[in-house]
Structure formats: C-alpha cells, structure tokens
Amino acid sequence: MTGAAIVCEQMAFSYGGAQMLFDLTLPAGAIVALMGPSGSGKSTLLSLIAGFETPSSGRVVIGGRDVTREPPAARPVSMVFQENNLFGHLDVTANVGLGRSPALRLSAQDKADVAAALARVGLAGMEKRLPRELSGGERQRVVLARVLVRDRPVLLLDEPFAALGPAMKGDMLDLLRELHAERGMTIVMATHDPDDARALSSSLAFVEAGRIDAFGPTEGFFGDAAPQAFRRYAGEMRR
C-alpha cells in the first residue's frame, strides 16, 4: 500500500458561528504537519477529511476519488484521535482486530496479521491486556498497530502524543517515521509542538481562523523567511 493524495477543494464548514474554508492539496506519501492556534480549525479539517463532519460546500478527493459524501468507514483513511482511541472493555488483541473486522470475526490470517502488527510496534506479549493496564505510550502503540492492520493509504493524527513525556514522544515519532518508510502512507498530523513538526514532517500547513494561512516545506517555517503569523504563533508557543 502506498499513500494517496488528498485534495480539499473550497471545503466550507461552519461550527458555532466560526466560518471555515479550506483549500489544500497534499501530495501522495507526504508527511504534513498541521499547526495553528487552539480553535483555528485543525481538528475540524482532520474531521472533514476523515468524514466525521460533512462540508456545506466543496469536495474532498482522496487518491483521485471524491469521498465527500462517504461515511468515515468507507474512506481510505485511518485517524488517531486525541483520546478514546481504544475500547476500554476490550483487550489489546480485540482492539487491534476490530481494524480488520468490525464484527471481530477474524480468520487465521487476520490473527497472524494482528500478532505481527503488535510485534512490530513493540507490544509482543501484551495481547491479553486491557487498555487501562497499559501506559499512555503503549496505548498509542496499540492504536498504531490497528492502523497497520487496517492498512489505509491516509493516516490522520490529531495531537496524538500531547499527553506523552519527551522521551516517549521521541520513541513514538521514530516509530511513526519507520512505519512511513515501510508503508509510504500519506500522514497528516495536527500538533502544537514545533519540534514534532521539524522532527517528522516534510511540509507544514499553518491554519488560522478556519483557513490555510500558509503551506510549504517545513524548514521554510523556521528560518528568517517564516510567515509573520506563524512566527507570532510559534513565539507564543515558546514563551
């Protein structure tokens, strides 16, 4: 599986008085960081691409296919939420297995894939644990294992590592980079941390007030030529 290009065409959405309009083209296989102030619309943009929200006008095209009217499960997308990525009453294997079969009816091949995915993210031996028996980092690894067995060309992450300590976050970023090298999916990650963006992404989209304010190579945002609004935002972050 390789990545798919994401095209948001004049995608309009209003939420509680905030008017948003997104127009953005992300090439297949890219790793894009999505940055911007709280409430600027990062999460909404991800939800629109994943299908949890429907734009009032405009289109979402993924891999050349118009998916604007498709339900979330039918889109070639996996999304990692800020929280509640796992069912607390189901064990690790079941949570990952749901990525293959929503009825949890798994063939021998499926079970082997689940085990392999868990081993790949470093969770071999924890198959029977419940989410509450895992650390925050391990829980996010379970989610990534499910992303592996779902094997969709697009991976969206909504501030996935915000709750992790620096060392664990570094490990997760490394893992994400390795998985991208293996699978080549298109990754879009919303984050507040400029270091995350620099460590992982090839390009960066800066969202402000429901619009894409700037989009380009990540390095361009951290030099003297950085857009003014982004500098203001990043400066705020560092203070």
Binding site: A50, G51, A73, L86, F87, L98, P102
Partner: peptide, 21 residues
Amino acid sequence: ARHDRLAAQLDISGWNRLRLV
C-alpha cells in the same frame, strides 16, 4: 462520546455495535 467516532471509523454498527460496544 467515547465510542461514536471510533465505531464510525471502524464500521462497527447494528448488532456488532450492540454486542461489542
């Protein structure tokens, strides 16, 4: 609140939703 988006993404609905979630 916890499960809706996850279930929608993983296409868990109807009887499966009732049984598993």
